[in-house]
């Protein structure tokens, strides 16, 4: 696993904030997510070959967010694979993400372009070498989130359905769906859990903590909304003490207020216009 920095995307980290997983198999290497840029992808591809002594036979994308998908140029179309929802998301938002990434990460992004995987992944199994991968096409963090479970070793690569000690991000989240996905992943017999961000551990703590964070978000943001706080006021509300140990808690909370408030305002207030 390549550990992402517990930071926001910046010119210092070049967008390398997400965890990337590499599996060794007798048939070749498997990578899960390709990183934030062409430059990262090229190094990832070389590293996977160097570590395993074999070419990359499969590069999976867990979801369409830019810190996970912009290294795809380094991989051939024959190995890139993702759920249909991920490809659709990239078609729709890829160019905007690229623009935003150039602004945030600067020169690290040079030469990076959107690549659409041609192999579509559905829920089910794929045998690669001696590994039997179970694909779980879920949703909640985005419209389409892939989790990869290596059945023989018990390793779960959860993508951004799980965060650990780094606050979850919600720009395209559907909180009830996310909770359902966490419940489904919690059923697996996990020996090691690789979250999208944060350390890998032998316990499912990342799933539990992500669920707690989502519950906190829902409660605090709904309470602020019900009390009539404006967005920026809601951003200043206190967070529970346990979140003090979570990297970027306040930063992501602010972002989540901006993501989740508009829907509450559109659905949660009565019509007040009167005809003249």
């Amino acid at each position: 696993m390549l550990v992402g920095a517990d930071e926001a995307i910046s010119r210092a980290n070049g967008g390398a904030i997400a965890n990337i997983a590499i599996f060794d198999t007798s048939e070749g290497a498997i990578v899960v997510d390709t990183g934030p840029s062409r430059r990262y992808g090229v190094e990832l591809e070389a590293l996977a070959r160097q570590l395993t002594g074999k070419p990359v036979v499969r590069a999976l994308l867990t979801h369409f967010h830019p810190d996970h998908v912009f290294g795809c140029q380094a991989f051939s179309a024959k190995v890139l694979a993702a759920p249909k929802g991920v490809v659709d998301g990239l078609k729709q938002s890829g160019e905007d993400f690229a623009t935003a990434m150039y602004y945030l990460a600067g020169d690290w992004m040079r030469g990076t372009e959107v690549v659409l995987p041609e192999i579509i992944i559905n829920s089910g199994h794929e045998d690669i070498g001696e590994r039997r991968l179970r694909y779980l096409v879920l949703d909640g963090h985005t419209d389409s989130d892939l989790a990869v479970f290596d059945e023989r070793s018990g390793i779960l690569v959860a993508g951004d359905l799980a965060f650990l000690d780094r606050a979850p991000t919600t720009p395209h989240a559907d909180l009830p769906a996310w909770n359902r996905s966490i419940a489904e992943l919690s059923q697996l017999s996990i020996s090691r859990l690789v979250p999208g961000h944060g350390p890998a551990e032998t316990t499912p703590r990342a799933l539990v903590q992500t669920g707690q964070w989502l519950k906190t978000l829902e409660e605090r943001i709904m309470d602020s909304f019900e009390r009539g706080l404006a967005m920026t006021e809601a951003m200043d509300e206190p967070l529970p003490a346990w979140t003090e140990k979570i990297a970027l808690a306040r930063y992501e909370y602010e972002r989540s207020v901006m993501h989740l408030y508009p829907k509450l305002e559109a659905d949660g207030w009565p019509r007040v216009d009167v005809s003249n």
Binding site: A8, A230, T232, E233, M235, D236, E254, R255, M258
Partner: peptide, 16 residues
């Protein structure tokens, strides 16, 4: 003047 630390949507920046 309170603005967010990061802008999520340039067309909808909350300000108090």
């Amino acid at each position: 003047v309170r603005v967010p630390k990061v802008v999520e949507n340039q067309a909808q920046v909350p300000v108090t």
